[in-house]
Design a protein around this nucleic acid. Structure first.
Lengths: 130, 130
DNA sequence: TAATAAGTTTGTAATGAATACATTATAAAA
DNA sequence: TTTTATAATGTATTCATTACAAACTTATTA
């Protein structure tokens, strides 16, 4: 399935801009910020506005096509992989790594229903601990 | 042990301001923001500055006396309970609840060492789902 | 005690992520 | 075409956070 079709499935009209941003996130699993997305795509799309990037990632997040990450930072990051996995922020190089986690058994109190689940670690990655 | 002694144990000089902020967090498990802490304590301490609140929560967080939470929001929240437990943000009432979790087995790749671990859920709480 | 140093607190100004909003552009429908 | 809806853009604003310097307090030394 093309990325345009994936957007349509979620009721999002696959405009050029939206597909471009979505495909960037699909092909760059670096958990980029809005600013990084904007800077990377600007050369290809000189008229792109940062506001458009904000609008688009908000739209895609709300549709569940991408995932928003908030890890001990002021800047949100985005991830096209919506599977359940953990994120590890290295305090040294500031990179965000993915890692698998045993999803903890749901021990939410009666009557609580979870929509999103996030597992965030911070620490030191392999490279930086040398 | 008094809260002042707890601060001293961590090498923090227990000034009036610091003890006041720490005790506020100990007695109010509502995960308040800097702004909320400031507004609550201002009447008692009219000369208190918001900068001081920022400085103090940073100091206490770095010493591990309190914990900083970042859940899908731009504003950081603070918690005097540093035990391992999960946080649940209700999309309805915007309150943050604590809940117990089975700490997931550490499946971090070789060479990675975790300093902090966070488990954040969002969804609907009991009251709001009625 | 006074003088000095070290640590705390404060307020203002600056930074920068995110949003509001109005305008322009593009696409779909009549 | 004309009209209508949807997308994209840019500017201005909001607001959490930080930088920084000045004022204040506490501890130390002479």
């Amino acid at each position: 399935m093309t990325s345009a079709e994936m957007l349509m499935e979620k009721g999002i009209r696959p405009s050029l801009t939206r597909v471009m941003i979505y495909e960037y996130l699909l092909s760059h699993r670096t958990h980029p910020t809005v600013d990084e997305i904007y800077k990377e795509l600007s050369p290809k799309a000189p008229t792109l506005s940062k506001t458009t990037v904000y609008n688009t990632v908000k739209l895609l997040s709300q549709a569940g096509v991408i995932k928003m990450l908030t890890i001990e930072e002021q800047q949100a990051r985005f991830d096209a992989c919506t599977d359940h996995h953990g994120h590890f922020l290295c305090n040294g190089c500031k990179k965000v790594y993915d890692f698998d986690v045993d999803v903890p058994c749901d021990t939410l109190p009666q009557g609580f229903t979870a929509l999103t689940k996030e597992i965030f670690y911070t620490g030191t990655c392999k490279k930086c601990s040398k």
